[in-house]
């Protein structure tokens, strides 16, 4: 893909960037939820089952 105009090139790269940003948000949230999911289970467990 050849770009003759910097503006067109920027439009292309920045559009990808915004999609990436959306993925970052979802990804971080997913990673966080995964990491802390066991904590929630522990939190809900009755006291004497915790180590």
């Amino acid at each position: 893909m050849e770009f003759f105009v910097y503006h067109d090139y920027m439009m292309f790269t920045k559009s990808i960037v915004y999609v990436l940003m959306g993925l970052f948000v979802v990804g971080f949230w997913g990673l966080w939820a995964f990491m802390t999911s066991r904590d929630e289970e522990i939190h809900k467990m009755p006291e004497h089952h915790k180590e």
Binding site: M1, F3, F4, V5, Y9, I16
Partner: peptide, 19 residues
């Protein structure tokens, strides 16, 4: 495919307008 077969880094490439 979408990223292009040649990386057209803005740092190296000059944009000379439509020929």
């Amino acid at each position: 495919a979408t990223l292009g077969t040649e990386a057209q880094a803005a740092s190296g490439h000059t944009f000379d307008g439509y020929p």
